[in-house]
């Protein structure tokens, strides 16, 4: 909660938060801002340039692009947050156990990260989805398998540092249970850098989700996913460049928002002194 109070104090955090709120507000207000159906075809209105009634123009089927980009915002943000925070929860748990207890869990985790990090991110995600088959569920599986490791490694290092600090020593004198110490005293501090990292992870994950749709290996049409909007626009790029431009700018907008949020978080969470 202290974080929420401190976040708007750094300019980056304030702008990032504002950008995200504007996005959420726009998705909620879309039915009033742009009263079009994101799926309904209207060939009479195909490929119109951006105008007062169609803010981002229309696509080759006459669908309003603003409405579709907004539907995509709901879709992509939900997907990206699941693909980042579910692996994060698992990675944080593994990292804490490894850092707190050390021993073979720790050794195994370190070897595993060394090996998995040798695989380029896109290669591994593509290969996993390629082998399992293209679907939304398999996208979750692929991102989970690849993404948890970064968090485990970060939290492991943090936990090792914190475990040596005096206030953790003190809990030992007080004979607190290990679970209680980990959950109440180590976790809140160890999770901080993971939270900052997760913001840049969201930026890359939104891009990767769109890239997977681009290769036909992610979410399938007619979902209003931003990557799908871009793929479907490629053939009309010359006549209707707005079809390609706006869904991409939406990804850029969300990327900037989360990058700034990350910057704000790292300032807000830095201990004073």
């Amino acid at each position: 909660m202290l974080v929420l109070k401190n976040l708007p104090r750094s300019p980056a955090g304030a702008i990032g938060l504002a950008m995200l709120l504007v996005t959420l507000l726009a998705t909620v207000l879309t039915p009033w801002l742009s009263p079009w159906d994101p799926y309904a075809l209207d060939f009479g209105a195909a490929m119109q340039a951006p105008s007062a009634s169609h803010w981002f123009g229309t696509d080759n089927f006459g669908r309003d692009i603003f409405t579709r980009v907004m539907a995509g915002a709901v879709f992509d943000l939900r997907l990206a947050l699941i693909c980042v925070f579910v692996p994060m929860a698992f990675g944080v748990a593994v990292g804490m156990v490894a850092g707190f207890f050390g021993g073979w869990v720790d050794a195994a985790l370190m070897r595993l990260t060394d090996i998995v990090w040798a695989f380029p991110f896109y290669v591994l995600v593509l290969a996993i989805v390629g082998v399992l088959g293209a679907s939304e569920t398999n996208l979750y599986v692929a991102f989970f398998l690849v993404n948890w490791i970064g968090y485990a490694r970060i939290v492991r290092g943090e936990t090792m540092l914190i475990s040596r600090l005096e206030y953790i020593e003190a809990t030992r004198v007080l004979r607190f249970g290990r679970i209680r110490v980990m959950a109440r005293h180590v976790l809140p501090n160890a999770v901080t850098p993971a939270l900052v990292y997760s913001m840049s992870d969201v930026v890359l994950t939104v891009q990767a989700i769109a890239a997977m749709s681009f290769f036909g290996l992610g979410v399938q049409p007619p979902a209003p996913e931003w990557g799908i909007l871009i793929v479907e626009s490629i053939d009309y790029m010359r006549e209707a460049p707005w079809m390609t431009l706006f869904p991409g700018l939406a990804i850029v907008w969300i990327g900037i928002a989360f990058s700034l949020l990350g910057e704000g978080l790292s300032t807000a969470l830095k201990p004073k002194g």
Partner: peptide, 11 residues
Amino acid sequence: IAMPPFWLCYV
């Protein structure tokens, strides 16, 4: 960093 590479290609 916010620009998705595959989109940047097309731009």
